[in-house]
C-alpha cells in the first residue's frame, strides 16, 4: 500500500512539474505566435489584392476593419456593427445598432483606435463600455474593406464553413460588385491527397472571376478538368494575356470542377463560398443604406 501511495504521489508531482514547464513556455510563445498569425493573414490579404514583395501595395491603399456583433437585449435581437469613422481627422469606431429589419436603432460612439480594435480583448472591453452591459454580446465576424484613393476596391472576408471533417478557414476577396477576385484556404483538416487538394491553385482559382449572378447558381460538376484550363489555373498570372483571355472566355462561366475522389470537400467549399458571398452582399447593402441615410462619417 505504501508503495502505491509513493508511486502515485511521485507521478502526480512529475505531471504537475511538466504542466508548469509547458504552461510557462506557452505563455512566453503565445504572443509571438498570435503575431505571426496576424502577419500571415495580412500578407494573404495583400496577396489576394494582387500585391506582393515584388509588387508592393501603394501608400494610398487603406484596409479598414468592420466588426459584426449580435446583441441580445431584453428578448430582442439586434445587429451591432462596429464601423470605422473619422472625426476631425482622427480614426475611431462607432457602434451602429440595427434591428432585424435593417433599421437603425441607436448610434453609440466608441473610444477605440483601429489598432486596439484589432485585439479581441480590447474590442470586447470597448463593446462592454458602449453598451453598458456584458450580457448577450456575441462577436460574429470581421470584414476588411480595401480602399484606394477614396474608392472601395475590394472586400476581404475571413470566414469559415464546414468541410468534410471539420471547419475550413478561408479568406475570400470580392470586388465592389461582389464578384470573386480570389480565394485563399488558410486552415483545413481535409484528407491529404484527397480533400486537402482544395488548397491547390487548380481548385481554388476556379472561383476567380465568378460574377455575383453566376455565383447564385454555382454548382459542382463531376467532370475531368480540361488540361489547358488546369494549366491556366495553376499559374493564372504567368500566362500571356491573349491566351488567358481565351481560356477565361471558354471556361469562366463553367461550374466548379470537383476534385477527384473528394466531391464532398469540393461541394462544401463551393456552398460555403456561395453562402458567405450571398449573406455578405445582403448585409453590406443594408449597412450602406443606413450609413448613407444617417450621413455617418464612415471610412468604409
Amino acid at each position: 500500500m505504501n508503495e502505491f501511495v509513493k508511486i502515485t504521489f511521485r507521478l502526480t508531482l512529475s505531471c504537475l512539474m511538466a504542466a508548469l514547464v509547458m504552461g510557462t513556455a506557452f505563455i512566453f510563445t503565445d504572443k509571438a505566435k498570435k503575431n505571426n498569425e496576424h502577419v500571415n493573414v495580412h500578407t494573404t490579404m495583400l496577396s489576394l489584392l494582387g500585391y506582393s514583395d515584388l509588387n508592393p501595395a501603394p501608400k494610398e491603399l487603406k484596409l479598414y476593419s468592420l466588426y459584426r456583433y449580435i446583441i441580445e437585449e431584453k428578448g430582442t435581437t439586434y445587429l451591432g456593427y462596429m464601423v470605422p469613422v473619422t472625426e476631425s481627422g482622427k480614426e475611431s469606431y462607432e457602434l451602429l445598432k440595427l434591428n432585424l429589419e435593417g433599421k437603425l436603432v441607436q448610434r453609440l460612439p466608441m473610444n477605440i483606435s483601429p489598432e486596439a480594435a484589432a485585439e479581441d480583448v480590447e474590442r470586447a472591453t470597448a463593446m462592454k463600455e458602449a453598451l453598458k452591459t456584458e450580457q448577450g454580446i456575441s462577436y460574429q465576424d470581421r470584414t476588411v474593406i480595401a480602399r484606394l484613393g477614396g474608392q472601395r476596391v475590394a472586400y476581404l472576408l475571413p470566414g469559415k464553413f464546414g468541410g468534410f471533417k471539420t471547419f475550413i478557414n478561408v479568406i475570400l476577396s470580392l470586388n465592389p460588385e461582389f464578384a470573386i477576385r480570389g480565394l485563399e484556404i488558410m486552415e483545413h483538416e481535409e484528407d491529404p491527397g484527397l480533400g486537402a487538394e482544395i488548397s491547390q491553385n487548380y481548385f481554388k482559382n476556379q472561383f476567380r472571376n465568378k460574377s455575383f449572378e453566376r455565383l447564385k447558381s454555382l454548382d459542382v460538376i463531376k467532370e475531368p478538368l480540361p488540361d489547358e484550363y488546369r494549366a491556366y489555373l495553376n499559374a493564372p498570372d504567368k500566362m500571356d494575356k491573349d491566351k488567358a483571355d481565351a481560356i477565361i472566355k471558354q471556361y469562366g462561366e463553367k461550374d466548379i470542377y470537383a476534385l477527384t475522389g473528394s466531391t464532398i470537400s469540393s461541394r462544401s467549399v463551393t456552398d460555403g463560398v456561395k453562402n458567405m458571398v450571398k449573406r455578405f452582399a445582403y448585409r453590406i447593402q443594408v449597412l450602406n443604406d443606413v450609413i448613407a441615410d444617417q450621413k455617418i462619417p464612415a471610412l468604409i
Binding site: M22, A25, T29, K33, N36
Partner: peptide, 11 residues
Amino acid sequence: VTVIDLVLAAY
C-alpha cells in the same frame, strides 16, 4: 518536445 515545438512554431 512540447516546449521546443511551441518555440519553433512561434519564432
